[in-house]
Computed example of a mutant assay.
Amino acid sequence: MLSIIIVNFNSADLILDCLKSIKDQTRAIAYEVIIVDNSSDTTGRSKILSFYPEVQWLEMGYNGGFARANNKGIREAKGDAILLLNPDTIILENTLDKVYPLFMDSGAAACGVQLLNEDQSFQIAGNFAMKGGLNYLLPLPYIGNFLKNLGNLIKVKKPNIGEAKDVQEVDWINGAFLMVRSSILSKSGLLDEDFFLYAEEAEWCHRLKKQGKMLIYGDFHILHLQGETANEAYQSEGKGYYNLYDKKGRQLIISNFLRIRKQFGVGWFLFDTIIYTLGIPVFIIGLIIENLIGLKMPFKNFGAVGGFVKNVFVLWTYVPRIIQGKPHFYKLL
Rank of each mutant, 00 (worst) to 15 (best):
A125R: 00
C18H: 04
I35Q: 02
G132S: 08
F196L: 01
S186L: 07
I254D: 08
E232F: 07
Y276S: 04
A30E: 09
P87Q: 06
G212A: 10
I253G: 07
K262S: 12
A129I: 07
A304R: 15
P327M: 07
L287V: 03
Q25P: 01
G303V: 08
E59F: 06
F283T: 13
A77Y: 01
G132F: 04
A77T: 06
A12C: 11
F299E: 07
H221E: 04
I5E: 05
G249V: 05
G132W: 04
L84T: 03
A164V: 08
N10Y: 11
T229W: 00
N38E: 04
A109H: 11
G307M: 10
M179H: 01
G238I: 04
I90E: 13
S188V: 12
S188R: 09
W268Y: 15
I285T: 14
L258I: 06
G112N: 04
K210W: 03
E228S: 12
W268A: 11
D97P: 08
K158D: 14
Y217A: 00
K78D: 03
F177S: 07
L84Q: 10
A110K: 05
I48A: 06
K209M: 06
G238D: 05
L153S: 12
L58K: 12
I253V: 10
A125I: 00
I35G: 09
N256R: 12
N8S: 15
Q226W: 02
D105I: 01
L292M: 13
Y52E: 09
A230G: 00
S39Y: 04
F196P: 00
R181D: 14
K165Y: 09
V305M: 14
D166H: 15
G325V: 10
E232I: 09
A125C: 13
K165T: 13
D166A: 08
D272N: 15
Y136H: 15
W57K: 05
I322V: 15
T273M: 13
I22Y: 07
V55W: 11
Y234Q: 02
K187M: 10
Q56V: 14
K326D: 15
Q324Y: 08
D194C: 01
I34S: 02
I154S: 12
A110I: 11
K210M: 07
F122I: 02
Y136L: 15
L270R: 07
I143Q: 03
I260D: 07
D41V: 10
A67D: 04
L215H: 03
L150F: 14
A30H: 06
